[in-house]
Simulated assay, not measured.
Amino acid sequence: MKNNHVVKVLKAQFITHDVKSFVVEKPIGYDFVPGQATEISINQPKWKNEKRPFTFTNLKESNYLEFMIKIYKDRNGVTDELGRINAGDELILHDVFGTINYKGPGVFIAAGAGITPFISIFRDLYKNNQIYGNRLIYVNKTSEDVIMGNELRKMLKNNFINFYTRENVVGFQGKRIDRNFLIENIVDFSQNFYVCGPEDFVKTITKILLDLGATADAIVIEN
């Protein structure tokens, strides 16, 4: 059975130049596993049937829900409209789904907004003192695109690797993430890997990891 929940937006603000955080009411009994997502639509006649998947970024025990959504202003679509949504407006939440679940320490590899499923996982691990043994390789075009960089650095410390593809910043990588980079930065390919980002990125990284000896069972991606 499909369950729809109309929720009020409690807070909405941009956290980067094109990513907006939404804090919304949490329906009674609404639960998720860190890494999971739901489909969201805007509770307005024109938009309520336009559903898009977004990941929860809050701790599961919070009394609210949070989403960090990349706004595409040039597409005249749902995210462009979400860019205009503010506190007091209403969204519609649908069923919870998602296959990115934490199964033990490993290397997280994210591109752009692909970091969002990992934020809830890291927050949960950090709160429970279980984040040790995890590393994050986070790929963005420029430093301005990094989502929650300060918090990720605080949680992961030296196990947080920033990687920029369009910008040469002193002390940071400035190229495409490739086989050589993974060989240089990952010693053990028998551990768990969590990969999220654009479809081509996930396919490319997954193929390289398999070529380097990772097992398909140990690679967690969104199916």
Rank of each mutant, 00 (worst) to 15 (best):
I221G: 01
Y194S: 08
N223F: 00
I219D: 02
G106E: 05
L59D: 05
E66S: 13
F118C: 03
G106W: 02
L156H: 11
A111D: 03
T165K: 05
I205D: 03
V23I: 15
G133L: 07
I221D: 01
G149N: 14
S120R: 01
F118V: 01
E61A: 03
I161A: 00
V107A: 05
F181P: 01
Y164A: 06
P34D: 05
F22P: 03
E151L: 03
V169L: 13
I119E: 01
A110M: 04
V139T: 13
N168G: 12
K141A: 03
I100K: 01
L212V: 09
K73V: 08
V220R: 00
K127N: 12
D200Q: 09
T57E: 06
I40G: 09
N3P: 00
L91F: 04
T55F: 00
K48A: 02
V169A: 07
M155S: 10
M155L: 04
L212C: 06
L65M: 11
G133Q: 07
V9S: 04
V7W: 11
L82P: 11
P27F: 10
V146E: 13
E222T: 09
Y102A: 06
K20E: 08
G35Y: 03
F67I: 05
I177Q: 01
E151C: 03
K70T: 03
E167F: 03
I131G: 07
Y126N: 15
K51Q: 13
Y72M: 11
I100F: 03
P45L: 14
D124R: 00
M68I: 13
Y102H: 10
F163I: 04
N223E: 15
I28Q: 14
N129K: 14
L125H: 10
A12T: 02
Y72A: 15
